[in-house]
Amino acid sequence: MNAAQRTPLRPGDRVVGKWSRQEWTVQAQLGAGANGAVYSVRGTDGALYAMKVCDDVGAVAFEWGLLEQLSSTGFAFPKPHCIDDSATHPALYFYVMEQVEGRPLDEIWKTLSSHDVKRVLLGVGYGLRALHKSQHAFCDVKPQNLLVDLRKNQCVRFVDVGGVTPFGRSVRQFTPTSDAAYWGFGERRASARYDIEAVALMVATLFESVPQSLPQWPVERRQAWILRSIRGRHDKSVGAMLEDAVRGRIHTADEFVRRLYTLNLRSTSVVKQSAPKARTRAPRSATAPTAGQRRGPFGNKPVHSSAKARRRSADWTERLMWWALTCAVISTAGAWAEYLR
């Protein structure tokens, strides 16, 4: 455990940069990771920022360099603002970046429709595509590292660069349930394929919670469980895509995005509804369809089958009338032509 985690900053604490002389006031702790903690801070300009605090200057310099590099490849990661060490807190190294708006994916997952899930995963795919162009993998894919802004059409942002690793290197930080090697599907080495596998595994474990005893299971049993969970999806096209991803058959973020676009999903909740233990008769309501009724195309007002039949009969009567009228006009015109000739 590092110093930043042993002695956390408290709301109201002031951090003054030793070299920049800029000042930030701590608002709240946003989270803590393997190599430091992240705080919401307010600058002297009144704006809110996120401050990553470590006791290791090397970790700060490494992550800062990655942020600077990634800021030119896309918008998924926070924009870097300033790097410094503290003049008021000894051995406190930090960098300041954009504070990303949104909520962690696991907090909103159960509220998303299938179309919302598709939109979120497309956002993840686009973010990974930009990252992979720099020959880096995200690696530590987990819901807490993906913030979704519901006010901006499910815009997805990545908030932790601690696990970002150059292609071909061993993965330094990972979450076991999103790690292909943990499930026996691949090696723990940074690549585009590793990230796609991680996203699919994350989605599968969001659909269905993993058993508490999973860490004690052998790899073969874990693999059988995750595949059974994926194949049990109500939407078979989603299950097929997830299985292809976890088995390493989707190699790039571009391919992942293309597969997502081919999914034709219904606007339903992604949460499985458990069957009731006993059958009960629900009371009829003004909006619930009864026998001889069906819902309209947007699921709002019930439409009576008999009413539909009456409309269909009226449509045919109107067509027959216009057909007869047209024939009469043609016949009359022919008669006048014969008479005048």
Rank of each mutant, 00 (worst) to 15 (best):
R172M: 10
R188H: 14
L201D: 00
R221G: 03
R169W: 08
Y194C: 03
P176Y: 09
R258E: 13
S229T: 03
S237F: 13
R228Q: 13
A275L: 15
V199N: 00
R189L: 07
R259Y: 06
L214W: 04
N264D: 15
E187S: 14
R189D: 04
V199G: 00
A198E: 03
V164E: 10
F185D: 00
W183A: 01
P176M: 08
F256T: 02
G168H: 09
Q173D: 05
W217Q: 02
G239R: 02
A278L: 15
Q173A: 07
A204R: 00
L214C: 12
Q223H: 11
H251I: 10
V270M: 13
H251Q: 12
V246D: 01
L214Y: 04
Y182R: 00
A240I: 03
E220A: 09
Q273I: 15
R247K: 05
R259K: 14
A224M: 09
H251W: 12
L206S: 07
L227I: 13
I230A: 01
I250Y: 02
T280C: 09
F174S: 06
A180E: 02
T268S: 13
S178Y: 02
S209N: 12
A190W: 07
A275W: 15
F185P: 02
W217C: 01
R258L: 10
R233C: 02
Q173W: 05
Q216F: 13
M241A: 12
V199T: 02
E187Y: 13
L214E: 06
P218N: 14
V257H: 03
D244H: 10
V271R: 14
M202I: 07
E243R: 02
R259A: 14
S237Q: 15
Y194P: 02
L201N: 01
A190E: 07
R221Q: 15
S178F: 03
V246A: 03
V270R: 10
F174R: 01
N264E: 15
K272L: 06
Q173C: 09
R169P: 03
R249T: 03
W217N: 01
H251N: 12
L201T: 00
S170A: 14
W225E: 01
F174H: 05
V203L: 14
S213P: 06
R231E: 04
R258P: 03
L214V: 06
N264W: 09
E243A: 04
K277W: 10
S191R: 03
G239S: 07
S213Y: 07
V161W: 05
V203K: 01
G168V: 03
R188F: 08
L260E: 06
V219C: 06
P215Q: 11
E187M: 11
L242H: 05
F185W: 08
S191C: 05
A204K: 00
S170F: 12
S267K: 15
F174E: 03
D195K: 10
P215A: 09
D244V: 02
P166L: 12
K277L: 14
L265F: 08
